[in-house]
Simulated scan of single mutants.
Amino acid sequence: MTVALDTVSAALFADLLGDGFALRGPGGQDLAVTLASCRESPHSTMAGSPRTAFSLVFHCPAAAAGPFRGGHCVLTHPAFGEIGPLYVERILPTGVPPGSAAYQAVFN
């Protein structure tokens, strides 16, 4: 099953904090990540938008991430199948365990 990007909302991820996901990167490599946060951003939501803007932060051990910096990825979870492609960027690993690589996806 594939979920359309225009139907994705923070509610889809609210009960999945701490769950494992897979990110398939631009080169086809798979990276096992854990959902660290899901934050809605009402003040960043465009007027008339059908959903509230939100962001997701994922993390994994930095050693496992290797040179993976992000890009257009497909996100996979057993609860919903695939979402994407969506743009994911490596960010500073704030609020995740030491020695982690962190990645963020933003939905407007």
Rank of each mutant, 00 (worst) to 15 (best):
T2I: 10
V3K: 09
V3C: 01
T7V: 13
S9D: 15
L12D: 06
F13W: 07
F13I: 03
A14M: 04
A14T: 15
D15L: 04
D15I: 00
D15W: 00
L17I: 10
D19I: 00
A22I: 12
A22T: 15
L23A: 09
L23W: 06
L23G: 08
L23K: 06
R24S: 09
G28S: 06
Q29V: 13
Q29C: 07
D30W: 09
A32E: 14
A36Q: 06
S37F: 01
S37C: 04
R39P: 01
S41I: 09
S41A: 15
R51D: 12
A53Y: 10
A53N: 08
S55T: 13
L56G: 04
L56N: 03
L56V: 05
F58C: 03
F58Y: 13
H59V: 05
H59C: 12
C60Y: 02
A62C: 05
G66Y: 08
P67H: 10
R69H: 02
R69K: 11
G70L: 09
G70C: 10
C73V: 14
C73F: 08
C73G: 01
V74E: 14
L75I: 15
L75V: 15
L75G: 06
L75T: 10
T76K: 05
P78A: 13
E82W: 03
E82L: 07
I83C: 10
G84N: 10
V88K: 01
E89I: 08
R90F: 08
G95D: 02
G99I: 02
G99R: 00
G99A: 11
S100V: 05
A101Q: 02
A102G: 07
Y103G: 01
Q104L: 14
N108M: 15
